[in-house]
Design a protein around this nucleic acid. Sequence first.
DNA 1: CAAGCGAATTGGTCAGACCTGTAGCCGGGT
DNA 2: ACCCGGCTACAGGTCTGACCAATTCGCTTG
Lengths: 248, 248
Amino acid sequence: MNARTKGPTSGPPRVEQAAGRVVEHVRRLIEQGQLHPGDRLPPERDLAVEIGVSRPSLRSGLQKLGAMGVVVPRQGAGTFVSDGPPKLENSSLRFLAALHGFTRDDMFEARRVLEVGTSGLAAERATPEQLSVMAEEVAGMFASLDDPQAYLVHDIQFHRSVAAGSGNPVLTTLIDTVAEMVYETRRLTVERARDLRQSAEMHRRIYRAVKARDPELARREMSEHLDMARQAQASEEREAKPARRTTR
Amino acid sequence: MNARTKGPTSGPPRVEQAAGRVVEHVRRLIEQGQLHPGDRLPPERDLAVEIGVSRPSLRSGLQKLGAMGVVVPRQGAGTFVSDGPPKLENSSLRFLAALHGFTRDDMFEARRVLEVGTSGLAAERATPEQLSVMAEEVAGMFASLDDPQAYLVHDIQFHRSVAAGSGNPVLTTLIDTVAEMVYETRRLTVERARDLRQSAEMHRRIYRAVKARDPELARREMSEHLDMARQAQASEEREAKPARRTTR
DNA sequence: CAAGCGAATTGGTCAGACCTGTAGCCGGGT
DNA sequence: ACCCGGCTACAGGTCTGACCAATTCGCTTG
């Protein structure tokens, strides 16, 4: 029975997973410099032949790459290598949070470690252009003290600009990933925020420390700010749903 | 049921991606506590019917979840919710590195920001058990000064134990992800390492600072150590391929 | 020459079939 | 009575082939 004619192809016991082969193949193309951000991949039908797997398998592999944020498919147009800012798929952290019970405080703490260190680096290296972006965002915050949602956008952008000022894309990516999760929650509660002016003031102090090239001060201000922000959000949440327990 | 008869007439622009639906469905199961780490998912054929997509589409979704490290398929047995330590798929960072040209120094710097902050937290909170794990790994390092590969394993485990000592799973996960990439390279060059004794000595100093509950000192020692490690690896690499010219 | 239309291209999905690996049942041998 | 071997149902892994939906772009037409 086992000796019966093999299936449609010469398929020997391939231990290689088809989807995995696809990922490997694309990785090789990228690492060999044959594929750059923004490039279009070959059509699925061609690529499937090229790699030697069926189209459904190829598609599984592309889904995998899509989940990693490496490629972006556009129906009717093709599949493209991601060209936006580097970003780990945030849903990944979401799942880990749900599976292992990460708390909001854990997130905030991780963010604090990341951003405190990064703000110090930014104070050492931020370019004048980057500094001016920070300044604009601070101004934007002061200009939208009566519009919490708009304020939140400037808040996010300010932190991104500080991260960018460090000149380290790895740190920028990590901060984006963690911060996004925090902000996702915040968006729902920010309407209840008070003391937006005080928050804007703290951002301005961070900016001034960075501009003054004082890493130590920048770290201290950032640390203080994030600690305050954590408490603020906790209080907003308590107010929003006093009976809400931790979503385990 | 719900036969989505998509007649050419009433066809509403259902942009719902099949694979996306699968991910959403599983996420809901997890967040509702109906699926815990280690659990087995329903068979693909059943799950496909339950969600209302075809099996190939379901499989695409599962690949996506697999790429995020949420589920682990085992041929013949079933698909299981990951129960190991939380971990972002490292290949994700590999791709970002290849796509956006992250350098080894960028990685080391990110690691330094993460681990310096985390070692401070560990100094404040590590439990006696965690401290003893750290001590064991330090001992392991001293015991394998003449076996670079074995030394490297203890090195890795020591850093993990310090991260664990912070009690913050988010930080632990992030450090694992970044560190893994660094070690991946290191494994190839560690044979050329010199000064393993000095490295072990530095680890011991970190351990003593953590045990002494001195966050400031722990941070300083960790920072110094990682800076030294970065230089060591750079020198190992230069030695490994001195004739390597611009191949890019 | 410009606007509009339709065919070719390309991703998105489905259905059915077959192979391979795993785990548990069951019988025979010890 | 116990243990070991093969057998079988189950579950994941893959393929073929087809059709739908969105986009692009060349071609026709006013």
